[in-house]
Design a protein around this nucleic acid. Structure first.
Length: 298
DNA sequence: CCGACTACCTGCCCGC
DNA sequence: TGCGGGCAGGTAGTCG
């Protein structure tokens, strides 16, 4: 599930349940995900009030009232689902519904008393366990190893053609690899890089530095690419992200941006660009699949 | 510094 | 039907 649009979709699902809630109990069903949980993680979280659920790049940030922030990453296969006590549940804190049972790879459960006073659970599931949960003081977040080198967000005003040009200047790597580098733009992943390059008509194999003039100013191509990156991310967020195999949203409903893929996982299909009669190809770049049209992406 | 490659882990799909 | 290989939205660490 998880590039920026999917993580933002998850954030929007978690916020109404978690914001203002007290963590009554934090249930860890194993000692680690990709990394060990922080020392005394349970003690640090239980009894605390959650003030907000935020996002930076592909990271979810759960702020606690005591000034600490839980950093959560979904890796490749992480997902959250929520369970809320309903009026048909007779005993407070009791969950009778069939859908409320645990599933394979449910590793973490946040047992909450919500701001409304009801009981709820937030369950983290992650078959491959590439995700992780860490904690740091909020005022030290920018210095955390995972954050100190992060590039700009592709939503909002931070990303500009000039910013992109300054990051691509002097880079000899293919454009695809540069855009996947979280130090350049934070939050893009394999799907949205492929889609943005197609929309901009740029080859994933193009040398990164060809989008920068000698003066360090962006080329027209860089401006075009910047606009298309913002657009595809914004379109995907509006669609609730992309749901490939898994549920993308915390209430179990599916995002539908995958129906809008022009190139990702479309090998052999006709290019959708008007007037282009090319075919979508798949190649491998730095160990990962790239999908593109060799005819209209130059 | 940069860039390419590998490791981490489970599940699914395809071909034999 | 069963099995092996390849592939999957992620990042971090190593090596040249």
């Amino acid at each position: 599930m998880p590039e920026l649009p999917e993580v933002e979709t998850v954030r929007r699902g978690l916020a109404p349940v978690m914001e203002g809630a007290i963590v009554k109990r934090l249930e860890l069903r194993r000692a680690n995900l990709r990394f060990p949980f922080p020392d005394d993680f349970q003690t640090a979280v239980e009894g605390k009030r959650i003030t907000s659920v935020g996002r930076r790049a592909k990271y979810l940030l759960v702020d606690l009232a005591d000034g600490n922030v839980i950093i959560m990453h979904l890796g490749m296969s992480g997902s959250f689902r929520t369970q809320e006590e309903t009026t048909s549940d007779k005993t407070p804190g009791d969950f009778h519904h069939e859908r409320n049972r645990l599933e394979a790879h449910d590793h973490v459960t946040f047992h909450l008393k919500t701001a409304k006073g009801s009981s709820a659970r937030v369950i983290y599931n992650d078959p491959r366990r590439f995700g992780f949960m860490l904690m740091t003081p909020r005022n030290a977040l920018d210095d955390h190893p995972m954050f100190e080198n992060l590039g700009v967000e592709p939503v909002g005003n931070a990303l500009s053609a000039q910013e992109l040009a300054s990051k691509l200047m002097g880079r000899t790597s293919p454009l695809k690899a540069a855009l996947l580098d979280q130090r350049v733009i934070a939050g893009l992943g394999n799907i949205y890089v492929c889609e943005a390059l197609w929309r901009a008509g740029l080859s994933p194999k193009r040398r990164s530095s060809t989008l920068v003039l000698k003066s360090g100013r962006p080329t027209e191509r860089a401006t075009l690419l910047t606009d298309h990156i913002k657009e595809v991310i914004s379109d995907a967020i509006k669609a609730g992200g992309s749901s490939l195999k898994d549920h993308a949203q915390t209430d179990g409903t599916l995002g539908y941006f995958q129906h809008s893929f022009a190139v990702y996982d479309q090998e052999g299909e006709d290019c959708a660009k008007p007037q282009c009669n090319g075919t979508i190809s798949r190649i491998v770049q730095s160990g990962r699949s790239t999908f593109y049209c060799g005819k209209c992406q130059k």
